[in-house]
Design a protein around this nucleic acid. Structure first.
Lengths: 246, 246
DNA sequence: CTGTATTTGTCCGTATGTATA
DNA sequence: ATATACATACGGACAAATACA
């Protein structure tokens, strides 16, 4: 997918030569993604990979580093150890997306407004679904998280707990794709907003959380949506969200 | 973020020892993400990194492979070459997100309905914004893309051109965050839907595209939203989208 | 055009740490 | 406790690519 030929004027239909370690990594990656190697499967040990591919141990190891950095494999030392295919895990996916968005904001390829709009777009329909799907247990959980935000000692804790509150709403809404995508957007947003320098007025935020919880508990979709929109504006210092359809 | 201590029962506050190559990679990664090393900057050559970190060249190289797999650096051989910090590029970010979502669908951690809902959530407000922001040039572009879909020779080409049509709508709407996130969701969706086996009825799709274009040109947000919703249902074989608020 | 210096790419051999049997 | 299997780490060497005088 990434190795399409550059469409220049006199582009010959050839691919640029990849280093050996890259080719080894590509082949193994394809095996994993296509399912020929399933999660938990063990790869041949490094010596065998050397002879199979006809490269040195060093080259094989560099290829394995690429795959382990992609969280496709992990290594276990010792007898009976080896290199295994990992089950895909959500946390590492989020971390990588977060890193990417962070770099894009750093180089001004995406800006604050786009991130805010994206967050609102993800979070407002989600809180509607949460208001529709909530169970009494869900409400209990939200109440506990709300309390933890209020009783947190310092700003860092409050921020983390607040993110847990929002994450819980995603989980209640029940869409795991959105649950995965949203937190990296938040993280990039808080980064792009450090020049704002407005110290959080936590009383406002606590009030917002309370109102959101109230609407979700009551099953009031419209109310929850408005409460969430107001909360996001409070969080990110937007006075008028001109483009938002709430 | 990933190196929090596991909260077991008798967990001592210690971190598991990372391999040397991992520590080197972590340090260099932090330097890049925090901006101490900006895109285009050149890292010290491998020998210098060896002496700085006090490890062998092999270890340094494995660390560099990790970072290059994250698309944070790239290597150039020869005199005046070296290892450089890359400018973040959107395509590689999308590819990685796509791989992740693909693996998650493959292991049934996310399902078709969640992907469909996510796509609708991203694409319906987007087409509204496109209907609001469109210029005459935008309409020309959409018309050309629509024609390319219709005149494509085979299914593969039609599919690719159709994705270009949708991508153009995102670009007209003007939110680059959403433009980045949406295509990987599409890709995972088409994968999770291969059992559907319904050969695309392209006439329906052409008709949908035409209606969307018409509404966007007229600036009819509601019409565009409904047309998009109907189109997505046609594409992914959903008869009743119970949870969607269109 | 030719050599020379610089830098990554590749390979080999060996030693060490770690976990299983 | 000993042997075995495996990843990890080291050091040295040469090859290949590129820039520059």
């Amino acid at each position: 997918m990434s190795d399409r030929v550059q469409g220049g004027e006199d582009a010959l239909p050839v691919k640029r030569i990849d280093p050996a370690y890259q080719q080894v990594a590509n082949q193994l990656r394809a095996l994993i993604i296509d399912g020929n190697l399933a999660p938990g499967d063990r790869l041949p040990n490094e010596d065998k990979l050397c002879s199979r591919f006809g490269v040195s141990r060093n080259t094989v190891r560099e290829a394995l580093r690429i795959l382990s950095s992609d969280h496709l494999i992990y290594a276990v030392r010792g007898a009976g150890g080896g290199t295994f295919v990992t089950a895909p895990d959500v946390l590492s996916i989020q971390e990588r997306l977060q890193t990417s968005l962070r770099l894009l904001t750093g180089s001004n390829e995406i800006d604050h407004d786009e991130l805010f709009e994206a967050r609102a777009l993800l979070e407002i329909p989600t809180v509607r679904n949460a208001a529709r799907h909530r169970t009494p247990e869900d409400i209990d959980r939200l109440r506990q998280l709300e309390a933890r935000v209020q009783h947190a000692g310092n700003t860092l804790e409050r921020t983390e707990n607040s993110e847990d509150f929002h994450q819980a709403i995603f989980e209640i809404a029940g869409n795991r794709v959105l649950s995965i995508i949203a937190p990296p957007v938040w993280a990039a947003l808080t980064l792009s907003w450090r020049d704002q320098s407005s110290p959080h007025r936590w009383s406002t935020i606590d009030h917002d959380h309370g109102r959101i919880l109230q609407c979700v508990e009551a099953g009031d979709e419209d109310g929850a949506a408005h409460a969430m929109m107001a909360h996001l504006r409070d969080l990110h210092g937007i006075s008028q969200g001109g483009d938002q359809n709430d």
